[in-house]
Design a protein around this nucleic acid. Sequence first.
DNA 1: CATTCATGCAATCATATGATTGCTTGTACA
DNA 2: TGTACAAGCAATCATATGATTGCATGAATG
Lengths: 107, 107
Amino acid sequence: MSMNAVFKALADPVRRQLLDSLHARNGQTLSELCAGRGISRQAVSKHLEILQTANLVVAEKRGREKLHTLNPVPIHEIADRWIGKYERRRLEALADLKRQIEEDHHD
Amino acid sequence: MSMNAVFKALADPVRRQLLDSLHARNGQTLSELCAGRGISRQAVSKHLEILQTANLVVAEKRGREKLHTLNPVPIHEIADRWIGKYERRRLEALADLKRQIEEDHHD
DNA sequence: CATTCATGCAATCATATGATTGCTTGTACA
DNA sequence: TGTACAAGCAATCATATGATTGCATGAATG
């Protein structure tokens, strides 16, 4: 059941952007996470609620505001499911190589 | 865009089970993948189509049947998105430890 | 060559999902 | 203490999604 919630949560682009935002800077409030997203506060609030039930985001009350934090554990479990240990090493090496090549191109 | 397709594809439990099935044994046909799933062949076919557009599954025609293969690359990219390199090492170590403990409990 | 089996295509339908509006609660601070 | 700001709750609505049924195509096999 739990993993289903994780995948459903990740299915929406707005929610993934929220995770991106938290990955860039943890501990943001609802209002901060709303900024420049073009949808209503309630919509964002609902998205955050879904991310929390999936345990991808943890929220903590701080006075009248609520701070949100990214939890990477469930994401890691996704990779664990379909990628064998050795296969993962290979894919990581590939990804690293790709990154290096891209960096080299930054003149 | 491409990543959106991947996440949408992973959002459905039937599709995840299909990936599980292919992870266990690659190169299965549509009919084989239908077996014991309790939904119509057309439903499975559509699911496989979605997995293919997400590039999570690759299909190859073999006479009158079609063989399906799991492609782990997009899954690996998910982890790459929200988990830093060092954080990943830490999470992997944790997962390995967890597995080891579970193995020890197998009498 | 005809029939059987694996798959593809199209239309339809119920339900799930994401967003909005309006109202309420509750904390801060002047 | 009352006003402004952060967040929660509820009802509604349009669209997306997953499944089904029925028919079409096309390769293997007798």
